[in-house]
Design a protein around this nucleic acid. Structure first.
Lengths: 213, 213
DNA sequence: GTCTATAGAATGATAGAC
DNA sequence: GTCTATCATTCTATAGAC
């Protein structure tokens, strides 16, 4: 056990209580960072939300920044998953419908994660910049080629793959990121409205606004 | 001149230097608030960006919150304009194309304003909530009726007007709000890419992804 | 592992000279 | 109108008792 250090981020074997506390901290940090951004969030506030004292939180994460990075890392993995699942061999219409459904579901089940991600990007992606330029870039280029192949085969209209991907991201994440605006506009009816989002979005993006013969 | 008070926000007649300084402050505050949010922004930082001392800034705006509200008020007016310009009598395709063009142009010329707006909404719209629930709500309901009329007349496909409006907002604002992500993915080519955004978006949303006969 | 106490820096806002 | 000086908080992070 000589390698079990006090700092959680360097620990290889962790006790049950460590795992539980780290989980509570990450959960609380997610909410606070998503609402106030890195600078605006207070460690005290996160500690209170996690039900512990500030020094105790800093026992698990050596600094506010280390905690922020840990939260972002988890969020990024979740955020990437739906895009990775797009399959080149599949039917384009089904693949797009499934992707929209996954992203809308993510916006509903992980709205806070989506907002944290948006907050980081709006702030200029100081932490995520590097991973966006490498890992996400490769992933996007891979999917761009998939879309280009679909276009070349005449399976979908000749669209710019990047614009398509950004439109898919934007339209699906809007339900999480701009939740406060949607609720202000729809009031009590917002909950039902969310349920119709993925079909409405799929139909709009696949069939278009102009009537089809 | 007895009505000329020191506080800019209560002043009716303002000297030239007041107008210039207020403008410099609002411009600087816009950038800082958009990047760090209300809590994360420091008055000192805004004052430095505006080229004056912190007490001098606070001579023009009595508090950080008053300054934030002043910046948001201006931003909201700009943000609302494109939607107000949608005309019921116009041809739906032309109206939508024009709206997308106006919004994409706004995202490019006023990217910082767009990000400030997004930041405020992500943080739960503490300041804008009331105006979203009243003025924006009425404006949106008005445009919802326009879209419903277009659908009823068979001029566009039967879409849910709210989902359409949100998709238009999301897809156009994405170019401003997620600018850091787009640049990370496209690198040097981002500038040219932006120029093709409004045509690509219009075509996608109007014609749809599935090939038309 | 968790706490109280506190150091040391940053922050919002004001007082008062000029 | 603009400045320096300053107050009162709040903040991140650490020290050290238990």
């Amino acid at each position: 056990m000589s390698d079990r250090t006090a700092r959680a981020t360097k620990t290889r074997k962790r006790t049950r209580i460590q795992v539980v506390n780290e989980e509570k901290i990450l959960e609380a940090a997610l909410e606070v960072f998503a609402r106030y951004g890195f600078k605006g969030a207070a460690v005290d506030q996160i500690a209170a939300a996690a039900g512990m004292s500030k020094p105790n939180l800093l026992y698990y994460f050596r600094s506010k920044k280390a905690l922020y990075i840990a939260v972002l890392r988890r969020t990024l993995e979740m955020w990437l998953q739906p895009l990775e699942d797009i399959a080149a061999e599949g039917d384009p219409e089904a693949e797009i419908r499934d992707y929209i459904a996954r992203k809308v579901a993510f916006s509903r089940s992980h709205a806070v994660e989506s907002r944290l991600f948006a907050m980081e990007i709006i702030q200029g992606a100081p932490i995520l910049k590097e991973v966006l330029e490498t890992r996400l870039r490769e992933l996007v280029e891979d999917k761009v080629r998939v879309i280009e192949a679909w276009v070349a085969a005449g399976k979908i209209a000749p669209v710019d793959p990047h614009h398509l991907i950004f439109t898919l991201w934007a339209s699906t994440q809007h339900y999480a990121d701009f939740d406060a605006q949607i609720r202000a506009l729809l009031g009590a009816g917002a909950e039902d409205f969310y349920l119709s989002a993925d079909d409405a979005l799929s139909d709009l993006l696949l069939k278009g606004l102009l009537p089809r013969p």
